[in-house]
């Protein structure tokens, strides 16, 4: 498998504080510093494209890909409007967005591009792209999170975008915009006293971070339903980011993982994490379910684990 098509993956939080008020708390500043480190790493990579999967852009009619070559407007967050406005001007790769739609349709998905003046790009995508690619050095596309999609649909979506990357011979950084635990405080808080909403949320977040640090992306994908039940407010049908991330990056556990920051954002779990496909470590990690293309009998997890 050609590892170059994914330079690396990032998992970043959706809330605007690292962009709009990094100085309000030491934790927000650490998240901001982590974003800045990732920005430098993207600049130093061979990436020619950024693909954002945003949990704060819901869709209903299948899967939408942002394709307005110059997406420009001033956004204001629904909750955190008092932190300030978020003007943006992003260069989108409309050709790649079209390729994604074609590949998604080939795999049985409903998909379309969106290319409209004044389209309301979501807080999470704006925060990520503003901090990771401030000068539009490389183009991006953003893919929505369908509110009804479950595991199979989300996994196929990731595979379809990977198809497009392969065919277009692109080198991408993939960015998942999502909290870990997503329960926020429902009363105003002093940013300097921000903390994870509960001990349970914090425990689970730290367990997830252990998995990320060990590069166990497929294991996280397999744990998605459990994560959803334990630490996700039940706003949507499932916790989908790990499904999508694993399917686009490769459904295995062979990654170098690094947690650059983990902090509370109004009570939710905000982490900046990098996962880089790795050739090593095959066989020392176990995952539960294969992604089977051809049946060769039952799998011995100790013998396998590679891609």
């Amino acid at each position: 498998m050609d590892h170059d098509i994914i330079q690396f993956g990032l998992y970043v939080p959706p809330h605007p504080h690292p962009l709009l008020s990094p100085g309000a708390s030491e934790g927000y500043q650490r998240l901001r510093d982590a974003f800045d480190t990732c920005r430098e790493r993207i600049e130093n990579s061979d990436a020619d494209l950024i693909i954002v999967y945003s949990t704060t852009w819901p869709s209903i009619i299948g899967h939408q890909f942002q394709a307005n070559p110059n997406s420009e407007w001033v956004h204001v967050d629904d909750d955190f409007h008092y932190l300030g406005s978020m003007p943006y001007s992003f260069t989108m790769d409309s050709v790649f967005a079209e390729a994604c739609v074609e590949k998604a349709q080939e795999r049985g998905l409903q998909a379309r591009t969106v290319n409209y003046d004044a389209f309301p790009i979501d807080t999470g995508s704006i925060t990520a792209l503003s901090l990771l690619n401030p000068d539009n050095r490389i183009p991006a596309t953003i893919v929505s999170s369908n509110m009804y999609a479950n595991r199979s649909e989300t996994i196929v979506l990731g595979k379809a975008i990977r198809d497009a990357l392969t065919e277009e011979k692109r080198k991408a950084v993939v960015v998942v915009v999502s909290s870990l635990s997503n329960r926020m405080f429902t009363e105003p808080i002093d940013p300097s006293e921000d903390r994870i909403h509960s001990q349970k949320d914090d425990d689970w977040n730290r367990k997830i971070l252990e998995f990320f640090e060990d590069g166990r992306l497929e294991d996280l994908s397999q744990l998605s339903r459990e994560i959803h039940g334990q630490i996700r407010v039940q706003k949507v049908v499932a916790y989908k980011p790990a499904w999508w991330m694993a399917s686009i990056m490769g459904q295995h556990n062979n990654y170098d993982g690094e947690v650059l920051a983990y902090e509370a954002l109004n009570g939710s779990g905000g982490a900046v994490i990098q996962l880089t496909p790795s050739a090593g470590s095959i066989g020392d990690k176990e995952f539960d379910e294969d992604d089977v293309e051809y049946y060769r009998g039952d799998r011995n997890v100790l013998d396998q684990g590679g891609v």
Binding site: W57, P58, S59, I60, I61, D78, D79, H81, V114, Y116, D117, A118, F119, P120, D122, M184, F185, T186, E187, P188, N266
Partner: peptide, 25 residues
Amino acid sequence: WQTYVGTHFLGVPGFSSKSVDPVFP
């Protein structure tokens, strides 16, 4: 207009802009 930290009320005398539905643009 979904808020998690309380209930919010519009507090600007006027708004003039374009509304594009993110789901049905």
